[in-house]
Design a protein around this nucleic acid. Structure first.
Lengths: 249, 249
DNA sequence: CTCCGATGCGTATGGTCTACGCTTTTAGGC
DNA sequence: GCCTAAAAGCGTAGACCATACGCATCGGAG
């Protein structure tokens, strides 16, 4: 007996470990096909357009055919979530941790922005897919020579991931509402705020508005977005590594 | 003529500025009623249970009655989103910025964790609701005496908000999957990882697993969750303020 | 008291996920 | 080479959902 405990359903799905059988009709689809089709639909028409029938149509099959490959729509979402980021970049082996993590974060931001729906997926549970884990591996490797303990590395990477997730959530929201209605953004946002924000009750916010922070001529720049706070976080990491390696830990 | 440009629909909704009329039948509901009912349903049965008919039933009304108050379900989501956080805590006036922002972040984490569905709301666009803006005001105020410029303050607060959003997204996912199936978590996650992670392809990750990081006996602690990375970020902010005020900016 | 206009809401339409069972196809065993 | 079990393909149907439309009902303004 192989004495292997049963793997969670998500894992067997994401890693293609569902038992492949011999007898019976040959499958005409693969999980990869279905995932790709779903991603295409989401890219082209948004997450709301991803219905089982729409994805099936994309593949030229009937709706119910998909359920032979995927137990529920949630499983499809899980697959999409791992597919959205693809694999991590190849960092040079001798890259210093800060450059490595900067490239990592920028890279993850960039690829995810190409599939903005990924942020809206209703996923629960820790990352288990092959791509997620490759990203994780990549970041851990960048911290390889810092002298941090394993748990500390995980903490740093989780923090960075946290940051990227939050940044995506906020910036994708903004960019969507910007691309949906460019004129109504920026200036008009500032004006709406100004109309609604009572200087008595919101003195600090009023100062900000008065300083024209929300009326920037440059409306939205993905490249720059988040660089500032990313830098702050990495400064904190640097200080931590310093503290940790000068023995004051 | 009052020369007032028209406010965006979201603003009039969130701030209760929809024109109140005189003639005709009296409304039996208020937007606040509807929002409260929706929040109750979401708290009790999850976001998926929030349907127009379910919310109407909660109020003892028919489904279509809600549409006299709210143009679409998305508008209801918008209201829920602003309601989820409530107002910010009252920070002492003389609190130093770091204590203030720490309390702020912890507070925002705490209240949002009491309405975990808030993270899943499909919202796009910048925050405009009264509660969101009060939180923003609160954080800006904590940075009042740091000597930072208005734009820099906004940057710092946005970064912190980014961090909180990301933290919520990750930790709520974890806690949900934990509470759904406590036994399957922690140890089993580690074991599943170990089974699937090839040491050849995932050396760094394998090290982490081997070090037992994922088998912690303490399975999940909301209070502590995120403190580590929050500290790192605030260290970065501290360094920035230092740099900025010692004139090296 | 009358009447305009807003609210309450029943009905209907077109969409969703997915359980079930039937038909078609295929590979293994004989 | 045939038979059969097992799997894929998928049509149908049930239970929801958001919401457009139209009508009855109610209440303040005149």
């Amino acid at each position: 007996m192989t004495d292997e405990i049963e793997l969670p359903a998500e894992v067997t799905l994401l890693w293609g470990l569902r038992e492949t059988v011999r007898r019976g009709r040959k499958p005409s689809l693969t999980i990869a096909d279905i995932t790709r089709a779903a991603v295409e639909v989401a890219d082209a028409e948004g997450l709301a357009a991803v219905s089982m029938s729409r994805v099936a149509a994309q593949l030229g099959n009937a709706t119910m055919a998909l359920y032979r490959y995927v137990k529920s729509k949630d499983e499809l979402f899980l697959l999409m979530s791992d597919a959205a980021t693809g694999g991590p970049p190849d960092l040079p082996d001798d890259v210093d941790w800060r450059t490595g993590l900067t490239l990592w974060a920028r890279g993850l931001l960039k690829v995810t922005r190409q599939h903005p729906w990924a942020v809206q997926l209703p996923i629960s549970g820790p990352p288990l897919g092959p791509n997620s884990l490759r990203w994780f591996e990549c970041a851990l490797r960048a911290l390889g020579e810092t002298g941090l303990g394993e748990e500390e590395k995980v903490g740093v990477v989780m923090g960075l991931l946290t940051f990227v997730h939050g940044e995506l959530r906020l910036s994708i929201d903004l960019s969507r509402s910007y691309t949906e209605n460019p004129e109504a953004f920026g200036r008009q946002y500032g004006m709406a705020l100004a109309r609604v924000v009572d200087p008595q009750r919101f003195p600090a916010l009023s100062n900000v508005i008065a300083a024209g922070v929300f009326e920037a001529e440059v409306p939205y720049d993905e490249e720059v977005e988040g660089e500032f706070s990313l830098g702050l976080y990495l400064d904190g990491v640097a200080a931590f590594i310093e503290r940790r390696t000068t023995g004051q830990g």
